[in-house]
Every structure is written in structure tokens, then in C-alpha cells.
Design a protein around this nucleic acid. Structure first.
Lengths: 135, 135
DNA sequence: CCTAGAGATGACAATCATTGTCAACACCTA
DNA sequence: TAGGTGTTGACAATGATTGTCATCTCTAGG
């Protein structure tokens, strides 16, 4: 993928700026609803629809990582890396570590080939308790 | 886990039998809604609520595998293996192959340890085009 | 065989994140 | 500064899943 980061965002608005700043100040995954609530508490009049659309645009542009909760909710997090990677998330505090998984990529390709599958992609997530929350 | 397959199912009813038979006759993942629709077409008067509850019970009992679609929907499939495993699913026809991933398990444990995480679990899914659908 | 009661069912309402709609608005360039 | 175009936001709609509760049906005991 080589999309320019702004492909889906022709303009710069205060709403987008606000969302971006909020994401920059937090390194855990947040839901659209959470972000919207936080912005409203901060005095912003931003609409929920806008938060959803903006986050999707960010995601399409590769500016944020998207993750799905068991319940099906979407969580977003700022992400600079262009590279393919996975996440190790603390299920207690939400702290997230980005992890490269060349081993897994190779394994996935091999297994897929063995079964005659082509054009194979994968989703992988690790969740546990971080060092602090383990105590 | 060593739950008996019937832990959450004290009784045997025609509804459960019907769902089980339907699952046995199909080796692809199906949604609760799909199964319900099929059963209704077959003349059954089964309720949607019952299909959901039964599938959940089956899942709790470890009799079926559960998978989540990008949209957040739940898909179910009969599964005999007690062992932990992953799925290689054809995104065209739904054909599914169960895959053991000792390599991945080991990798996950190592990565988690490196970052001080404990009690780590993971979710992994492979999706591509099967041999037939690749043509 | 009959009966009681715990477990199971199903119609319906409720939930809730997400998406669609569309008129009003704000950004940016000329 | 003006205008057109991308954006916004209030609101309705969607759709899968879950909650509720009166009714039903297994199944064991008599």
C-alpha cells in the first residue's frame, strides 16, 4: 500500500485536529464512543458521526491501527509504523506494544501453501497482563 | 479445559438435535441467522433466540468453534478437536481447514515474556482462497 | 402410565454500536 | 472577500445479539 496519509482528508478542521491530538496524548486503544465522550467533556461540540468518519478516514490512510473487541467494537490507536505488525495488549490497563512477527508471517505462508490456499492474509492478536498489572 | 460436552445442556430436545444435525451436514462456518433461516425453510418452527442460545451452549461446551467476521458477526462450525488450533478459511466458499500452530504458540509465549506480559492468550485467523477458488 | 417441576422454548421488546441522510456550515483558493 | 466543495452534526435507520417471561416439554420418580 502506498497511499498518501491524507488521501481521504482534503481539509484540516478543528474536529480532526482535536481527534488527532487526543490520539497523540494516549497510547492505548480507544473506541470511537470513548473518544467522542472525552471530546465532549472537554467542551467540544463534535458529533459522534464525525468521530466515526474521521477515525475511519485515519484508518484508511494508515494513520491509526484498528482492533476489534470480542463484542465487535472498533478500537483505534495512533500508529506511525507503515510495516505490518501485531499487537500485544494488556487486558487490564490497555497498554499496547507493537510487535513484528516475521516468524508468524513465514509460518502463515507455509501453512497456506501446504493446503493449496493463495492470497492469504491473517489477523493475530496477543492479549495478557502487562508487567505492572501482573503484580 | 475438561468440561463434559453436555455441561450446559441438561436435556435433549428436537431443536438441539436439529441444530446439531445441520452442523454435522456442513463443514463451513455458519451464522446463527443462517442456521435459523435454513431450519425454518426445512419446516422447523424453531425460534431465533433458541438458535443463539443453543449455539452459545455448544460453544461453551467446546463442541463448536466460534469465529468472528470483520463485521462482528459470530460464525459457528462443528469441531471435534479438543486441542487448541486455528483456522484457514476460504473467503470465497467458506471452506475451512483446521491448523495446529505450535510454532505460533511458542512465538507468542516468547514475545509476551520479552515484554513482561503474563497470562497471555492469542487469537489467530488465516483467510485466503482455497485451491478450487483460486482458479 | 401419570405427574410434577426443572429446564427449554419462542415471540417480542430492548440494546447498542455503527452507518445513512441531508441541510447547514467552514475551509481554502482564486 | 466570495464561492464551491469538502465537512459537519442531528437524527433516523439498521441489524445482530441479548433480555424477558409466560408457556411448553423432557425426564425421573411414584
Amino acid at each position: 500500500m502506498s497511499k498518501p496519509p491524507t488521501e481521504n482528508m482534503a481539509r484540516s478542521t478543528k474536529q480532526r485536529t482535536a481527534i488527532l491530538e487526543l490520539l497523540e496524548s494516549d497510547d492505548a486503544f480507544r473506541s470511537a464512543q470513548d473518544l467522542h465522550a472525552i471530546l465532549r467533556e472537554s467542551g467540544s461540540k463534535i458529533g459522534l458521526t464525525t468521530v466515526y468518519r474521521t477515525l475511519q478516514a485515519f484508518a484508511d490512510a494508515g494513520m491509526v491501527d484498528v482492533m476489534r473487541l470480542p463484542g465487535g467494537d472498533h478500537l483505534y490507536r495512533l500508529c506511525g509504523a507503515e510495516e505490518h505488525h501485531h499487537h500485544l495488549v494488556c487486558r487490564s490497563c490497555g497498554k499496547t506494544v507493537e510487535v513484528a512477527g516475521p516468524t508468524v508471517e513465514r509460518w502463515a505462508g507455509k501453512v497456506a501453501a501446504e493446503h493449496g490456499f493463495t492470497d492469504v492474509g491473517h489477523t493475530l492478536e496477543l492479549h495478557g497482563l502487562c508487567a505492572s498489572c501482573s503484580k
